[in-house]
Design a binder for these strands. Structure first.
Lengths: 243, 243
DNA sequence: ACTATAATACTTGTATACAAGTATACTTAA
DNA sequence: TTAAGTATACTTGTATACAAGTATTATAGT
């Protein structure tokens, strides 16, 4: 990739990914972070030149991003939609929707193994905090919720999650990197909230789960703010690059 | 396309579609209808030969179908998942989920225009019934629900719908074609139920909406049965075609 | 100055070519 | 007969070439 800027997406998570996937991950991060502004028109040829690959993987990446609703494929070029405050809230609407659905199913299941897995993941999150590893923390955070969602074995709920996950992950990554530098205390609260979630699942306590979910989602406002900070910070070091 | 069998997907709906989209639509119908059985391994080369096109549009189609969860891309070939009874119920779970969400938003909005549009669509459904046009009926049925879902302007709910719609549409097409030949009386009930839905939206009556939704979903069991009939009928005229 | 038309520089969609990896089947050795 | 290893035929991923369509720009005519 021609521009020697640091990648926004952790490269070590891409060990087995195809070129198309790599580019999708990187483009996604640039769009979410605001480095590529909403309204920008992306051309397959330009992108191929920028990333120094052929159009094949570029096309693949663009189709992926289009299915995630952060770009829109048009006749002449792909238009960047990006994430405004509205979109971020909508993403969390959907997450709230599916996690609530999932919880109703969980109540009727044996959740012993799930609770165990979640505890393990939470332990890993604590270690990540201890060692100031924002990326690892984000990864485990995403895995925490993925574990819950997948646990009910509902293929179409999982499908929705699969569509939502990449953008979600990017959002969390940017937010957490910011917090690790500026709002370190947040993590105590985040960990506590996840513990609450595990308790709710173990006790199959609907009220507790709702409470935990809501505290979680009150945090969304924080994420939105983090994202703006992140966007400002990132765009300072970047010249306008669409000649 | 080499096999001169009739297409399952209405060709006139594909006037502006690319080759890749056409193939996605046709493959999807064959998978939903069971002509291509669950477990089958699809190879890009074979499909390209069958449809007499290059691998480019085939790859595009396969990625689309994978995002809809009816095939699974693996290292060596795409594995057909298909629709068992479980998957069909899951699809309706999701539709129930998002339509319930949508209704909660609708309650806070002005629904005059929407109700008008739905009435128009319902009129068209009636005409389609009168002229025995199963495909047109299906189209309007899908549009009915799409109009509702899009009306709240929630891009990520719309995104879920976009992912669900093609399979949904295929399912409805097959089911309605069957009913037009065997269970003509069903349509009186379907129309009535849609009228109920419009009433609920106009009156912003949550209870009525739930009632209508549930009658609608009780119908799902019917759809499942239709699909099996459809699969049996279709597979009678087809030799095993995977040499 | 302004409109209409034509040339040009872009865009995507599809076909083809090649490379690298994987499963299968065959051959060879014990 | 069985096990190991090799050859082969298949798979996907990426690069490239070409065709058809669209927007823009420049040019010509009034």
């Amino acid at each position: 990739m021609s521009e020697s800027k640091d990648y926004l997406y952790p490269q070590k998570w891409l060990s087995k990914a195809s070129t198309g996937d790599r580019i999708a991950y990187e483009l996604r991060m640039r769009i979410i972070s605001g480095i590529i502004e909403s309204g920008t028109i992306l051309s397959e040829n330009k992108l191929a030149a920028d990333f120094e690959v052929s159009r094949s993987p570029i096309r693949e990446a663009l189709r992926t991003l289009a299915s995630e609703n952060i770009i829109r494929l048009e006749k002449m070029g792909a238009v960047v939609i990006g994430l405004s405050e509205k979109e971020i809230e909508e993403i969390y609407d959907v997450r709230l929707l599916i996690e609530t659905f999932v919880f109703e199913r969980l109540i009727k299941m044996d959740t012993t193994n799930l609770a165990l897995e979640l505890s393990k993941t939470l332990e890993m999150m604590k270690v990540a905090i201890k060692y100031n590893d924002a990326d690892e923390f984000s990864y485990q955070d995403v895995m925490f919720h993925e574990a819950i969602i997948r646990s009910i074995g509902h293929s179409y709920i999982t499908m929705i999650w699969n569509n939502l996950k990449p953008v979600m992950e990017g959002l969390i990554l940017l937010s957490m990197r910011m917090r690790f530098t500026e709002k370190y205390d947040d993590f105590t609260r985040i960990v506590k909230n996840h513990e609450l979630y595990i308790d709710a699942i173990q006790a199959k306590d609907r009220k507790l789960m709702i409470k935990s979910l809501h505290e979680n989602f009150d945090d969304v406002q924080g994420k939105v703010e983090d994202l703006w900070k992140s966007q400002q910070m990132l765009s300072k070091g970047v010249e306008s690059q669409d000649d």
